[in-house]
């Protein structure tokens, strides 16, 4: 009972952390989508000078733990003279990481568009970039929306790793509450509940957009 009281009392505090988590995730997904779109297109380039670095980028970021990437950017970049505060460091790390996964999603999305679409557009005199922008990407994005939604959800959960560099998102806020109240289980349960609530709402929103786009 004591445990539940503490959870209720500290729930607003946890919600503040959840708000930080949402902001962190939204920024990171924003960077990830922009980065992923270009890297995804880059991987499909016939020019090796473009496609190879893009492939290496994707392989490296998918092949190393996010926790290591976050630590590298926060603790490693100062070696190169770049000092990032925890929050920007977390956004950069999460953005770079999701960029790699989104690049793969975008690549698959582009490849799912029949070759004839590209050829028809090019045969009308549109350039490669115009074709990507007006013909391929709009269709690809419609196809990959569910996958992008999944990535958003994954990142919402993964953003908890930003707690290791001291970003006061939901996970770390919860740890603060625990250290103050010593109520380990109930607070962790509260954290889990809020994470679930966030991912549930996000998945509903994505589904709603999906349906709207399908009828458009």
């Amino acid at each position: 009972m004591d445990a539940l009281m503490e959870l209720f009392k500290n729930f607003p505090f946890l919600l503040l952390g959840a708000w930080e988590t949402l902001k962190l995730t939204a920024f990171s997904v924003g960077i990830g989508v922009i980065l992923g779109t270009f890297i995804g297109m880059g991987r499909l380039s016939k020019i090796k000078l473009i496609s190879y670095p893009c492939t290496i980028y994707v392989e490296f970021l998918r092949g190393t733990p996010l926790l290591v990437q976050i630590s590298l950017i926060y603790f490693g970049l100062p070696q190169l003279g770049i000092q990032l505060a925890p929050y920007p460091a977390a956004i950069v790390a999460l953005g770079l990481n999701s960029g790699a996964y989104i690049a793969e999603i975008v690549r698959a999305g582009i490849q799912s568009i029949p070759k004839g679409q590209y050829e028809a557009s090019r045969s009308l005199g549109l350039t490669h970039w115009q074709t990507m922008r007006y013909i391929i990407l709009p269709q690809a994005f419609r196809n990959i929306l569910p996958a992008l939604g999944n990535e958003f959800i994954t990142l919402t959960k993964d953003s908890s790793l930003a707690s290791v560099i001291g970003v006061s998102e939901l996970m770390r806020s919860g740890q603060f509450v625990i250290s103050r109240t010593f109520q380990t289980f109930s607070i962790y349960f509260g954290i889990a509940f809020i994470y679930f609530l966030m991912t549930f709402v996000i998945s509903r929103i994505v589904r709603y957009i999906e349906r709207r786009m399908a009828t458009a």
Binding site: F27, G30, I31, V33, I34, L84, A85, I91, V92
Partner: peptide, 20 residues
């Protein structure tokens, strides 16, 4: 999103400068 990105970059630079 562009606006956010720009804000973010500026923010990062400011913070980086203060934390140098």
């Amino acid at each position: 999103m562009k606006k956010y990105l720009k804000t973010l970059i500026i923010l990062t630079l400011i913070v980086a400068a203060t934390f140098s």
